[in-house]
């Protein structure tokens, strides 16, 4: 089976006012399809950079990075965009919903860039919104939704393209505890039921503890990569 993400000695350097800053100093790991991984670490540890690389928003300056089996090194901005559209679903801390745009249109947005017709987009978006429990909020705009609902719209948007990887950057950071819990449960449920790999960047210990695997970042390298247990199909069923 093709790994969802495969990183081999991935490096990322930035030029900051003539100075080279090493954000990632050689990171290697593999994320299998259906995995549930938390990337944790203090700010400046390189976890955001890693997140951008995994999401195909950025390319490494060294090493090899394969997203769904495709080496991103040879891809231009347009090809990267297509790769993101087809394999990655993003969930952001601040939701990033389009204002003045209904929930269903927000969810359908990625399908616009697939060239899908308006009717097909709406059908698909409605189905996904129903799946995240917002079937009754289709035509509501972000400012008419609660924070938890907004994040669920964002999750629906991430799911609408049937991605291989769901990439969540502090998905509960802007939510209260109850809504945060609900969003986490939804993400975990999707991970279990849809088989989509869930990669979550967080510095919330409790959130990280719920993942089956935690990658600890510090100073641009992986400090620790711990897994609870072998990820078997049986175990998924045994989880509470």
């Amino acid at each position: 089976m093709t790994p969802a993400i495969e990183a081999i000695d991935v490096r990322r350097a930035y030029q900051l006012e003539g100075l080279e800053v090493q954000a990632l100093r050689g990171v290697s790991f593999t994320i299998e399809p259906g995995a549930h991984v938390a990337v944790v670490g203090p700010s400046g540890s390189g976890k955001s950079t890693l997140m951008h690389l995994i999401g195909g928003l950025d390319r490494p300056t060294g090493g090899r990075l394969l997203i769904d089996g495709r080496d991103v090194a040879g891809l231009g901005p347009a090809e990267l965009a297509t790769l993101r559209n087809e394999t990655i679903g993003f969930v952001f801390q601040s939701f990033h919903l389009l204002a003045r745009t209904s929930a269903v249109d927000n969810v359908a947005l990625p399908l616009v860039y697939r060239g899908l017709g308006a009717k097909a987009r709406r059908e698909k978006a409605r189905a996904v919104l129903e799946r995240v429990g917002l079937g009754h909020r289709l035509d509501h705009r972000p400012n008419q939704l609660s924070g938890g609902e907004q994040q669920r719209v964002a999750i629906a948007r991430a799911l609408v393209t049937d991605p291989a990887v769901l990439l969540a950057d502090e998905p509960t950071g802007n939510l209260d505890t109850a809504n945060g819990q609900a969003v986490l449960e939804l993400l975990e449920q999707l991970n279990r039921e849809a088989g989509v790999a869930l990669v979550m960047v967080t510095h919330d210990r409790e959130v990280a503890a719920r993942a089956r695997r935690r990658i600890h970042m510090r100073d641009g390298v992986i400090e620790q990569d711990e897994s609870d247990a072998p990820e078997t199909g049986d175990e998924i069923w045994e989880r509470p």
Partner: peptide, 10 residues
Amino acid sequence: GLRKAVGAKP
């Protein structure tokens, strides 16, 4: 940025 993240080409 959001549009690009979800697959908009330049």
